[in-house]
Design a protein around this nucleic acid. Structure first.
Length: 270
DNA sequence: CCCGGAACCTGAAGGC
DNA sequence: TGCCTTCAGGTTCCGG
């Protein structure tokens, strides 16, 4: 499940492969993966462009191109990018192939078919709606307090809202709430100033740990070289139903919040 | 405007 | 063995 730490890892590990290289071929195997422009225009307009920068915004990967346009990729639930240096067959479920001038191929693999790409003049058209990045200076406890006030939805649901904070997904939301000792069903506006401080630090800690461990390989997340991350090995509650809480020993429970599986410790999270 | 729920999609895993 | 159900979740859309 690519969330902020997973997309950050892909950005870091893909950079040496694509920076300064030219796009010499684009093959679309599933038309729905291209959102804008048409798949035919998408392929031809990319030809001959150099990749000048690679960046991340929320869960979006952004390739800046030499004509100042942006190729934006969202892996959604199950997408991954694989780098291949030989001419072996694309892996199963490959939806698109991008070929570079040194012969390297990048396979966009996506068994679920939710992943999307855009080629746009202004990347803000796609990512402009996103809230603040958790590691930028604008992200502060004061900002969180303002964002949480007057919101009566479960804090878990608000953490998943990309308009509010960019990059947190289901796994890291559960981990952050556990680290902060806050029950996922607490309404956002019920959090005390102290709890908001704890949650602020917890968000940055769990995301930083995820990046340090190169992402969490549950289900379909792989790094560009095909290897897995290790962040899931440190998860305290996410997908740990029935396991003892590492802090108090109470069994981890699973409930559904806004249609999302939500894991928490009934002993530690109030 | 605010909020909850469904839909999109398909492979993996578990139950009987 | 095989069929059926459940689970996985980022984002968008719809209805109250």
């Amino acid at each position: 499940m690519p969330e902020l730490p997973e997309v950050e890892t892909i950005k870091n590990e893909l950079s040496p492969t694509v920076l300064g290289r030219y796009i010499t071929g684009v093959t679309i195997l599933s038309r729905v993966i291209v959102r804008e422009p048409s798949p035919a225009d998408f392929s031809t307009r990319l030809l001959g462009l150099k990749v000048t920068a690679l960046s991340r915004r929320g869960k979006y990967l952004i390739l800046s191109l030499s004509n100042s346009e942006s190729l934006i990729i969202h892996l959604k639930l199950a997408g991954s990018l694989f780098v291949s240096h030989d001419s072996s067959d694309p892996p199963q479920f490959t939806k698109a192939v991008i070929e570079l001038n040194d012969g390297t191929r990048i396979y966009f693999r996506d068994p679920r078919g939710f992943g999307r790409m855009w080629l746009v003049k202004d990347c803000e058209d796609i990512v402009g709606y996103l809230g603040p990045e958790p590691f930028e200076p604008v992200f502060t406890p004061e900002l969180l307090a303002r964002l949480f006030s007057r919101r009566r939805i479960p804090i878990k649901a608000l953490l998943l809202d990309q308009d509010v904070i960019a990059g947190i997904g289901n796994m890291y939301a559960d981990e952050a709430l556990f680290a902060a000792g806050i029950h996922p069903l607490r309404t956002a506006n019920s959090l005390s100033r102290e709890e908001i401080e704890r949650l602020y630090h917890a968000i940055r800690e769990v995301l930083a740990a995820g990046i340090k461990n190169r992402g969490a390989s549950v289900q379909n997340y792989f790094r560009p070289d095909g290897s897995k991350g290790a962040a899931h090995l440190e998860f305290k509650v996410a997908r740990q139903k029935g396991q003892p809480c590492p802090r108090c020993g109470t069994k981890i429970e699973r409930i559904v919040v806004r249609g999302r599986g939500t894991y928490f410790c009934p002993g530690c999270q109030r």
